[in-house]
Amino acid sequence: MLDNFGYFWEVVLKGLPYTVYATLGGIAITIVLSVIAGLALLSGSRTVRFISRIYVEGFRGTSELVQLFWIALALPILIGFQLVPLWAGILVLGLNHGAYGAEVVRGAVQSVPKAQVEGAVALNFTPAQRMRRVILPQAFIETLPPFNNLFIQLLKSTALLALVSVPEMTKQAEELRPIFGGQVGVIYLIILVLYFALSVVITFVMRLLERAAARRLGRRPVKHDTLSDPLAGMPVGGSALGGKP
């Protein structure tokens, strides 16, 4: 059974870079979109709020797989331009998780005590200064646990790219399955363990960030007893469409 382990390992590892690229690319887009759309949700302009709302609810309200198929398969036909599947995948991962991240950013900004804002007003800060110098540094730490979850979700979602032929880990495993039917369990276990290891890495990095941010604010770091906190960032009131687990 383990005769082919080395071969499986080799094939699956070929997919690992794609999984990592997709994760990192998706995270980058997620961060940018979360901040832009999240702040837009709090904008004074009704039009800006509305546009952001449409984006957030549109992507949270539909299935990620539908979005992937739509952008990877339908959009190229409509615009007559074929995206590389990996790039289409990264775009979808970023757009989808950015919509969830926008709510995280919005919630974190709103969680900054009102007295802090009033203090900044009293110091004659401009609204932009208020945001940059007072609110965002405090909101930042609040976003870290939910973003940790979100990034792990994003990592898990990279497996979907197998369904649009991106040669990432799950796709590699799928390629092996028809040939090594009886040993497919070993193949899947290898990639499950690799995914788990990548989650641990994400959590590790996020916890480091959290600790650093806590130190900067002079707070004690929060203790976590699980890898991700499935309740952090669960929308409770105020947000429309269900929570990303």
């Binding site: 497996a159 979907l160 197998a162 495993a173 399955r177 990639i191 499950l192 995914y195 989650s199």
Partner: peptide
């Protein structure tokens, strides 16, 4: 919770 649902389905 830390691994993809799709792989689990497979």
């Amino acid at each position: 919770r830390s691994t993809p649902l799709l792989v689990q389905i497979f």
